[in-house]
């Protein structure tokens, strides 16, 4: 069964067309990475899939339903590129993650024990349970990113859509994060995520698509990691990172790729 079906999609903002003709299909259980240069339209693609950017031409289907008529939003967990703008009042990590239960609970039902349990479990998965009562503003950028991932996981979705979840996250957190995603995928979850570099997530990625000039320029299995990389317990932060990066760059457009 296809979870995401995108057919000849065109979308953009105020007269500027960013995506011209994108066709993409994500089946249940797939883990698909979206790659591309800064400004190539990766975020626009996933935001259009989720209905945050209007579709100009073409079609988007979620779980077999045209996106406009899709109502089962509890099946989708979204991790935006950054924390929302509403931060005029302090909010605790627990409160932000609790928002992830709304799609399941609806507008009128107050949170119950099952909601609290899901929030705890999601925070445990990203290693932030000890910060549940802290204001999110006191967290580092990487910890805030993990809070947003916990918010998406708390809803127990079937599909996770993540926009650069590892940007600004240090190596140790990336490993923790890769663990959480691996567990999600092992349970049969589907993942679509925007990435700048595969990093510790590489073993998880089944397919990579490259967005370039409004189209999918390339689509395929990410370059095989060298033999010993696949060994379990292997430390991925090491000099070979250079070689790995070069492997992607052979077939991904490199203009404007983020260089930290």
């Amino acid at each position: 069964m296809t979870v995401i079906e995108v057919n000849h999609l065109a979308a953009g903002y105020d007269g500027r067309e960013i995506l011209r003709d994108v066709t993409l299909s994500v089946a249940a259980g797939d883990v698909v990475a979206v790659l591309g240069a800064n400004g190539s339209g990766k975020s626009t693609l996933i935001r259009t899939i989720l209905g945050l950017v209007p579709i100009r031409r073409g079609e988007v289907e979620l779980f077999g339903t045209p996106q406009r008529r899709f109502r089962r939003w509890e099946r989708v967990g979204y991790v935006p590129q950054r924390l929302g703008a509403g931060s005029g009042v302090p909010a605790t990590v627990g409160e932000v993650v609790s928002s992830g239960r709304l799609a399941r609970r609806g507008l009128f039902r107050p949170p119950g024990a099952a909601d609290r349990a899901a929030v705890h479990q999601a925070l445990e998965a990203v290693g932030l349970l000890d910060r549940i009562g802290d204001p999110v503003s006191t967290l580092s950028g990487g910890q805030q990113q993990r809070t947003l991932i916990a918010r998406a996981l708390a809803g127990r979705p079937d599909l996770l859509v993540l926009d650069e979840p590892t940007a600004g996250v240090d190596a140790a957190s990336q490993e923790a994060f890769a663990g959480a995603l691996t567990a999600f995928a092992a349970d049969g979850g589907t993942i679509l995520l925007v990435l700048h570099e595969l990093g510790p997530l590489r073993p998880l990625i089944g397919r990579a698509v490259v967005v370039h000039e409004g189209r999918i320029a390339h689509q395929g299995v990410p370059p095989e990691p060298a033999g010993h990389h696949a060994e379990p317990g292997h430390d991925h932060v090491h000099p070979h990172a250079d070689a790995e990066q070069a492997g992607i760059c052979e077939w991904a457009p490199t203009d404007g790729m983020k260089a930290y």
């Binding site: 989720l50 703008a85 107050p110």
Partner: peptide, 23 residues
């Protein structure tokens, strides 16, 4: 008071609220 969780989600992150299927 009744809509606190929904209004909190809305004011905290409007796009996330949209993807949660909130009105």
């Amino acid at each position: 008071l009744v809509f606190r969780p929904a209004l909190f989600a809305l004011c905290n992150d409007e796009e996330y609220a949209r993807v949660s299927g909130l009105p």
